[in-house]
Design a protein around this nucleic acid. Sequence first.
DNA 1: GGCGGCATGTCAAAATACTGACATGAACGA
DNA 2: TCGTTCATGTCAGTATTTTGACATGCCGCC
Lengths: 153, 153
Amino acid sequence: MNERTPTGPPHPADDVTHHVGYLIKRAQAALRAAMDKVLRAHGLTVPQYSTLELLALRPGLSNADLARATFVTRQSGNVVLRGLQDAGLITRPATADHGRARPTHLTEEGHRRLAAVREAVYAVEQRMVDAIPPQRLPALLTDLERLAAALEE
Amino acid sequence: MNERTPTGPPHPADDVTHHVGYLIKRAQAALRAAMDKVLRAHGLTVPQYSTLELLALRPGLSNADLARATFVTRQSGNVVLRGLQDAGLITRPATADHGRARPTHLTEEGHRRLAAVREAVYAVEQRMVDAIPPQRLPALLTDLERLAAALEE
DNA sequence: GGCGGCATGTCAAAATACTGACATGAACGA
DNA sequence: TCGTTCATGTCAGTATTTTGACATGCCGCC
């Protein structure tokens, strides 16, 4: 419908769509959509892929660990894990050796599936990276990290 | 549980948590949590606040317009709009003058509520901005915009 | 005029994520 | 030793969001 501001933009910062917060949300939405599209062909959801990637990097993570790392609640993390377990991509010991936390590991099939999707997912990431001047990438990464850290306290 | 990588990080880019995509997600999650916390005190959700802000900037936007601008489906947008309408913060004509799209506008109460929460929300944004070198902010904004645009096609 | 393409609003159903609550196990200090 | 505190896993219920589908109303084109 109406895509132009009726009064005109007096200053860039007055337009909410140019604020840092809005741009982060926009970038995340675009990334999510692109990953969804790519992962659907492999029968994986974004949270499932993220969990696989985290487990490949740090085997033995518990459900609570994975939930924190994927930015969801423990309860949501649990259903993701259940789905991956039903698909035979991860294993969880029936009983915890130490506390209540049960360390999760990738199965052979899990490693294979992850390897199979990685190329497609990394291509998405590459499309992002290629969109900016290479010499600015390090600064972008550290700035994003500081942004997040500032809000996490 | 185990927070360290078992093999050690050979190269920063090998750690998924240092990828652009992961950092964007992390920043967005932190922003969402911070905004939620602040908005709860005013009885607004993040999508509701976003819609209010968009309507203040571009009065007359339709439900589909707002859904696109807030990165949700039309159906979800409709729920948000219904909530705002029930709260008396927006108005929608019962019948569309032109197509099917019904232009949405803020009520007086809507403007007041938006003005009341803005300070708190902008303080959150300021915490982010203050976390990075000021001279790098413009580059960050344009880079984020390019990142998103590259994935949106 | 008639027709196909397209965007919008909306309904129904399923998936997804969350809040709240509780029990269990470990660590710590009195 | 005991009690407190904390983190974890899990259950139940709710809220939110999405997918899929359909009807309606413009618009361009033949």
